[in-house]
């Protein structure tokens, strides 16, 4: 465990060192959140409710979704691809700890920093827009659990995508595709409840909703306590499934690399 703690620290320091990357990413996300905020605002001046969502709920959703999206925002696919090309990856694989564990704890360290920074920014925006009226103790606690599990789901998905980099050099394309896929299907841009019929059904059976939609719905109270429990359980199931899939694919992918020197 001590070994992994060192990686948490390492990830944290890494986050500090590359803060400009993180800040740009966060600002880009933030602009998107602001744009969506005003789009919805103009929509709700014409009608009271859209698919059961009122302006009151939407105001919260936009910002909470932004918070969930910003935590754990740095993808590690590009980093891994670079290490594969250079041959440094072999140093990671030789270390006496699990490769995936190392990645995870490193991300955890960075995520801690990201969470703190985003929380201050979005917390103040949220409070100035919504005030304290919608907050509730139990829901916030459940939200934090769900947010943490959502990070787990996101990590598993990123890990599987990062394995693709063992087969292709196009890490930029892989990263972009993963980002767009998760943004679209996780509810980062629009609540999944607004998806049209068939798509809504499909999304239900995908793991992506656990990343953003589930924690958001728990926080803003669209899910009852019982529903929240069920969806948290679903998140855990997805983490196990994707985790197993990751190990399986990992075994294959590690066999592919061949290196000159290193």
């Amino acid at each position: 465990m001590k070994k992994y703690l060192a990686y948490i620290r390492c990830g944290f320091l890494e986050g500090c060192a590359y803060r400009s990357t993180f800040i740009t990413g966060m600002l880009a996300n933030f602009i998107q959140a602001v744009v969506l905020y005003y789009v919805w605002k103009s929509i709700f001046t014409y009608q009271e409710a859209v698919n059961g969502y009122t302006w009151e709920i939407m105001k919260q959703y936009v910002f909470v979704a932004f918070l969930c999206n910003s935590v754990f925002s740095m993808g590690f696919e590009m980093n891994i691809a670079e290490r594969i090309v250079k041959g440094d990856i072999i140093l990671d694989l030789l270390k006496p700890l699990s490769y995936r564990g190392m990645l995870f704890f490193r991300m955890l360290g960075t995520a801690g920093l990201e969470f703190a920074a985003t929380f201050v920014l979005i917390g103040s925006v949220y409070l100035s827009v919504n005030g304290l009226q919608y907050l509730s103790g139990t829901r916030t606690a459940l939200f934090l659990i769900s947010l943490f599990l959502g990070m787990g789901v996101k990590f598993c998905i990123q890990y599987i995508f990062s394995l693709l980099c063992f087969y292709t050099d196009n890490s930029y394309g892989v990263t972009k595709a993963r980002e767009i896929l998760t943004n679209f299907f996780s509810g980062a841009l629009i609540p999944l409840a607004m998806f049209p019929g068939v798509l809504r059904e499909i999304v239900k059976y995908l793991p992506f909703q656990g990343i953003i939609y589930t924690p958001c719905c728990i926080f803003i109270g669209t899910f009852s306590v019982e529903e929240s429990m069920i969806s948290i359980f679903l998140q855990i199931v997805w983490i196990v499934v994707l985790g197993l899939l990751g190990s399986l694919l990992g075994k294959k992918a590690f066999g592919v690399i061949s290196m000159y020197g290193g």
């Binding site: 859209v50 394309g173 972009k176 595709a177 767009i180 679209f184 841009l189 629009i190 998806f195 798509l199």
Partner: peptide, 25 residues
């Protein structure tokens, strides 16, 4: 691959606009 990814991502972006408009005029 880039051709595929670009088509995919632009499709998603346009899809988002369609989804917003499927709920409102």
């Amino acid at each position: 691959m880039m051709v595929f990814f670009t088509l995919f991502s632009q499709g998603c972006n346009l899809g988002l606009i369609c989804i917003i408009y499927s709920n409102i005029p």
